[in-house]
């Protein structure tokens, strides 16, 4: 076997470390401010979900299942799921998890949709962003969990930050694809009537790309939910932490209860967000 020559060693690791140190020393104020804003949003959602009485939330979820997803049966199934989560004793934790997921998705969309739009409008942006998105999706999440910890400390904020990085690619990709595959003649027609690029975007491209963007939002939400267990490792309270504790103590039953609760939440969120992409015009 011929071993790889030592001469070509590139000290990428030490560069990254140096950059980290520099960022921590010089931009800690910035990260504190960002962290504060993110935290307020999560706490806002948490307050809302914990304030609304459980039976009203169950009713609302049932209503959403009935009106948005399809039949009364779906609504009733969703209500049973929510009721089971509560009866496992995980109502509060599931509400915290839900707040975390919703806040993460909120920020992911805030970044993702404009990125997707700019990617659709410029081939060069697309060329640059594509490998970045690939990296975000394939990079093991622990790799950026640790820097997130160093920037924001323990708790909800780094968990959300990591969740966002992991969950944002689908909505960016699908916004891009959605806009790029809009009927060319519809765009040409708008152009022919003298529409500005902004008018074309809001009158034609976004509305016609809506189903695709909605699928992206749905995917992003599901991936955010999948990150809650990992998020709990750095101190975000929620169902994920329950799973983690159960694993540590080898309490199979408890772990299963928490796991099933996550699955129930996932199914409900998936069906509801997916229904938005399916909504047909008359």
């Amino acid at each position: 076997m011929i071993s790889f020559p030592d001469v070509t060693t590139i000290p990428l690791a030490s560069w990254i470390d140096a950059a980290m140190t520099w960022l921590l020393q010089n931009l800690s104020g910035f990260f504190d401010a960002v962290g504060f804003i993110i935290l307020q949003v999560v706490l806002g959602f948490e307050t809302i979900f914990l304030f609304i009485p459980w039976f009203i939330i169950i009713l609302l979820v049932g209503l959403a299942g009935w009106k948005l997803v399809g039949s009364i049966r779906t609504g009733i199934t969703f209500m049973i799921f929510m009721f089971l989560i509560g009866s496992f004793g995980y109502w509060e934790l599931s509400m915290r998890t839900l707040s975390l997921v919703i806040a993460s998705v909120f920020f992911a969309l805030l970044i993702g949709i404009p990125s997707g739009i700019s990617m659709a409008r410029s081939d060069r942006t697309e060329r640059i962003l594509k490998p970045v998105l690939d990296a975000m999706q394939t990079m093991p999440s622990f790799v950026y969990l640790i820097p997130a910890l160093m920037f924001f400390g323990m708790g909800k904020v780094p968990a959300m930050f990591a969740t966002m990085i992991y969950a944002v690619p689908p909505v960016i990709r699908l916004t891009n694809v959605g806009i790029r595959t809009v009927d060319i003649e519809a765009v040409e027609a708008a152009k022919a009537f003298g529409a500005t690029p902004k008018q074309i975007l809001f009158d034609v491209q976004l509305p016609l790309a809506k189903p695709s963007i909605m699928v992206g939002i749905n995917q992003t939400t599901m991936m955010a939910l999948a990150m809650v267990v990992i998020g709990s490792m750095i101190g975000a309270k929620g169902l994920g932490m329950e799973v983690l504790l159960a694993i540590n103590r080898i309490e199979v039953g408890r772990g299963f209860e928490a796991g099933v609760s996550i699955v129930f939440l996932a199914i409900i969120i998936d069906r509801i967000t997916f229904s938005f992409s399916q909504k047909k015009e008359k």
């Binding site: 003649e185 519809a186 027609a189 509305p207």
Partner: peptide, 13 residues
Amino acid sequence: YGMVFQHYGLLPH
């Protein structure tokens, strides 16, 4: 101008 397209180019929404 006014322009008419082969596949109509209408806004479905």
